[in-house]
Design a protein around this nucleic acid. Sequence first.
DNA 1: TAAGACGTTTACGTTAACGTAAAGCAGGTG
DNA 2: CACCTGCTTTACGTTAACGTAAACGTCTTA
Lengths: 132, 132
Amino acid sequence: MSTKPHYSISDLAQEFDITTRTIRFYEEAGLLLPERNGQTRIYTDEDRVKLKLILRGKRLGFSLAESRELIDMYDPNSDNTRQLNALLSKIQARREQLERQLEDIHLMQAELDAAEERCRDALNLTQPATDH
Amino acid sequence: MSTKPHYSISDLAQEFDITTRTIRFYEEAGLLLPERNGQTRIYTDEDRVKLKLILRGKRLGFSLAESRELIDMYDPNSDNTRQLNALLSKIQARREQLERQLEDIHLMQAELDAAEERCRDALNLTQPATDH
DNA sequence: TAAGACGTTTACGTTAACGTAAAGCAGGTG
DNA sequence: CACCTGCTTTACGTTAACGTAAACGTCTTA
């Protein structure tokens, strides 16, 4: 038997440094569907993972709708063979987007390098000789 | 003497697959400041580079305000020594953000791998023996 | 039992990043 | 000259992703 920890809404809010409103909003958007104890939401480890995926997607500039696709991929309940091939092509599309982002990041890093050098040069011209 | 090509607003719109409205909006937001021939905007190569930076930032989930900071770094007109150190720390912050995004991308790629494998497994169970 | 901490729903407000008209000027062409 | 093409400004509309406030339930702790 596996241990099944669960979390309150504020547990997760605190852990990921977001508000409870945000979490409820994600539920409204159909990205989460926690169990309930009466009115109170109860989050499982799976919900926690989904939230993590959402936030990671957000950091990469994905919309919630896009993140939902990612979560749907992660969901092991898509057993329709017909859909699986569609999923595979979506996965491929994602992969290509990530490749583009990787390239963007490398380009950006190179430009930060250049910008930093320009800055340092400008400072050196002001403070000519740093003989200790 | 360097050749100084210039572009119309629709030249750039077409090249980057955005609307002219978008480009004017970026100007409104203070990210671009093209020359004018009367009323008509004339874009230099430098403007083109800035636009490129904005769009790259966008792909990485940056806001326009953040992209403006990137452009300001790129601008060689920040000659105030006092500001340069602030710039350097901003550059550093950017760098760390990019590192985080890199990590996010790698994690995401790993999960796409896993998702793909699950898909393929599911398909193989349906189509058991692929003896040609 | 009153207060405080935590949860809930409902609903209107806000910001960013454009979209979408509407109305008009400027230059070239049949 | 009338028309078309491409540019302009002004201004209101829209969508996503929450923020914020109101009003209420529930538990526990002083």
